[in-house]
Simulated scan of single mutants.
Amino acid sequence: MTTRPEPDGGELDPGLSAIMSERRQLINLAYRLLGSLADAEDVVQETYTRWYAMSRAQQGAIESPGAWLTKVAGRICLDLLRSARVRRESYVGAWIPEPVPDRSEWISGRSPDPADRVTLDESVSMAFLVVLEEMTPAERVAFVLHDVFRYPFTEVAEIVGRTPGACRQLASSARRRIRDSAPAQAPAARSAEIVRSFKQAWAAKDIEALVALLDPEATGLADGGGLVSAVLDPLNGAREIARVLVELATLVPDLAFRERTVNGRPGLVAHLDGATVAVIALEVVGDRITQLWAVRNPEKLRPWTEN
């Protein structure tokens, strides 16, 4: 986003820094609402476009520019969520939220503006985002705005287009979904140990070791988006997942893995011939891996690409 000088070519708009300081908050909000960094960036760009489409007098009449930007971004996200369900009906295979690395690990061909980075916490763990995907658009927006970003229901109501009481009910329903669907994950240090053992067992093609690390009822999903090869159907059960992983390691012997932070939790990144070919998020509960999400869609791997 480029800054705009005063019409006479003099000093920059004194309110510009305040407006642009909202960018990171908007990126973080839109990513949690949409599960896509690319879409979040588009939403923020459109939000600022609408701001600068107004005259200086119109801008000056807005009491809280930050609240205005949030309202506009929230409404754009709500519209996108409503249309996303239709778009994803034609998506090839499973749709998994776009994974993001730790802020210190962004390795794409440029050093991104800090405002473009997502702040990592439990509200962006893959397990959390997957539960958000199961909510209605209104539930997701009401819950994220209120419970994650602490906006009052009076402001949430203006974005969702419902009464504050209705938004309170939406957030409560979403909260129950989170409570019922997302078991407490193991501490990060313990998860890292399990992920490391998992990587070693996978590299060794040790199917029994993999089975021991996976919960008996574990599930695995892969997202290739129809652009690259990926298992289209969910994998169910420890032995089925382990079997497919060993087959993959046998078919692609040069596949290498690195332990990385994926959406704030220990995960793995797969490399082949120097290129990032998959980002793998894992949910660890107790001492077992209960969920495995492998993102292969190259359009979702931009922040992980070295070249």
Rank of each mutant, 00 (worst) to 15 (best):
V130E: 04
V130R: 15
V130K: 15
V131E: 13
V131L: 09
L132A: 15
L132W: 05
E133Q: 15
E133R: 06
E133Y: 02
E134L: 09
M135T: 04
M135W: 09
T136W: 04
T136Q: 09
T136I: 04
E139K: 10
E139W: 07
R140I: 01
R140T: 10
R140N: 00
A142V: 03
A142P: 01
A142T: 00
F143R: 12
F143E: 08
V144F: 07
V144E: 04
V144R: 10
V144G: 07
L145D: 03
H146C: 11
H146Y: 10
H146W: 05
H146D: 14
V148C: 03
V148N: 06
V148Q: 03
F149H: 12
F149S: 01
F149Y: 13
R150W: 06
R150T: 04
R150E: 10
R150I: 02
Y151T: 06
P152R: 11
P152V: 03
P152N: 10
P152D: 07
F153L: 15
T154A: 13
E155C: 06
E155D: 13
V156P: 06
A157S: 12
I159S: 00
I159T: 14
I159G: 02
V160G: 01
V160D: 09
G161D: 05
G161P: 01
R162H: 11
R162G: 04
T163Y: 00
T163D: 01
T163F: 01
T163Q: 01
P164W: 10
G165S: 14
G165H: 10
G165E: 15
G165D: 14
A166P: 07
A166K: 13
R168N: 13
R168G: 11
R168P: 02
R168M: 12
Q169I: 09
L170D: 12
A171C: 04
A171S: 13
S172L: 12
S172M: 08
S172G: 09
S173R: 11
S173Y: 04
S173C: 02
A174S: 11
R175V: 02
R175C: 08
R176H: 08
R176K: 14
R176N: 09
R177E: 12
R177K: 14
R177S: 11
I178F: 03
I178K: 06
R179A: 15
R179N: 10
R179P: 03
S181P: 04
S181I: 02
S181H: 10
S181R: 15
A182F: 03
A182V: 07
A182H: 06
P183Y: 03
P183L: 01
A184Q: 14
A184M: 11
A184I: 11
Q185W: 05
A186S: 10
A186K: 02
A186P: 01
P187L: 07
P187A: 00
P187N: 00
A189T: 13
A189F: 05
R190V: 08
R190H: 13
R190A: 14
S191R: 00
S191H: 05
A192P: 12
A192H: 04
A192K: 13
A192C: 07
I194T: 15
